[in-house]
Design a protein around this nucleic acid. Sequence first.
DNA 1: TTCGGCCTTGGTCATATGGCCAAGGTATTT
DNA 2: AAATACCTTGGCCATATGACCAAGGCCGAA
Lengths: 207, 207
Amino acid sequence: MTKAESNDRVLKEAARLFRLQGYAATTVREIAAASEMLPGSLHYRYPSKDDVLIALMERAVDKAIAEVDVAIEHVSDPIERLRVGITKYLELLLEGDDALFVMLFDWRSLPIGAKRGLDRARHRYEAYWDGLLAQAYATGRSRPVLDIELVRHFGFGAATWVATWYKKDSGRSPKQIADAFFAFLAYGLLDENHRPPDINAQFQKLF
Amino acid sequence: MTKAESNDRVLKEAARLFRLQGYAATTVREIAAASEMLPGSLHYRYPSKDDVLIALMERAVDKAIAEVDVAIEHVSDPIERLRVGITKYLELLLEGDDALFVMLFDWRSLPIGAKRGLDRARHRYEAYWDGLLAQAYATGRSRPVLDIELVRHFGFGAATWVATWYKKDSGRSPKQIADAFFAFLAYGLLDENHRPPDINAQFQKLF
DNA sequence: TTCGGCCTTGGTCATATGGCCAAGGTATTT
DNA sequence: AAATACCTTGGCCATATGACCAAGGCCGAA
């Protein structure tokens, strides 16, 4: 196994354990054992436990952006790109690497000093989605929403939270969930026949 | 200070510390010190750290349900009740007790055995919201949404996630966020003039 | 074949932690 | 005033943990 392969193995096993037990409750010895190496070897690769977490998060963001990019590559309509991108994101979050989950839910574990690397990774990821949202907004087919950041927060929250309740092989697939989610996000839950007439004006004020 | 007052003090300080540092990273000594008692005294009240977390979560749910109940008491329209309830929930989550936040984000910290108490608390809270949603649904003003649990998951996720980005005294108030959130949830982000005609049929299939 | 760098081995060490308790004090009840 | 239940005190202990390292082996390059 090459150096890169070994390091990947470590990050993968660490992500699995962090997700399962939480960061603080996972020991470096466990990570080493799961990666089939001795604690000393792990220390050689990553001097501290924080370093493992940060590396894992950086890689998760790289991977997520790359995979979503591929998924939307051949889709031209910005709103459809958003839909496809969200679908891919949910697939990654629910069935892919645990690292994404860990990044989203274990960032509080880090001592304040170490949060720097994490903040950079998160910010990179948020900026990526803001780009997709801005393009969708620019089509003019959306409401006159003024605050893309707020939209991202809401959508991101609903999508991310799926990871807390989703169970494999029970009910809906990630794709089905994504379809329902996008309909919810795009069209809302109230019937068109029971809406006030000035919705867009309301949005202008509220967003 | 009475026994109940002292116990409350402990739970309050524990919630603050858990939220700040995470469950595993907080020591019983810290909780004791913050509650102005010695570790032994804390042990007398709560034999183990897990017990503190569970008690804190139970109380958070009791309190949240009670406060939302009061807030919607005099509102009769089910959809308006939902809106007011969500607003109250966001206020509690963002400016109230840290215990609610801890319940939502630190449940993974518990050893599997101790998750029982937590699951009960969470289930109680979810059932409460399902009740509000069912009443709103029964008005017939919503889309023909078939799966209330899915709706709750999406709404809950978006609302809960606010706690991860909200900063006090910067930008919107909890009430403003709640208003925008409800508009998003009820009416969707796409303009009515750019929607397909068969949205309700789509929802029938997707939800 | 020899050399040199990369990686592993098998520990050690100081520290922090959760859980625990015997003894003593304080307040409330009878 | 006496008894009793309640709570605090101050410290102990076994264990687990993150970090660390000297020594040696493996393997490709020269």
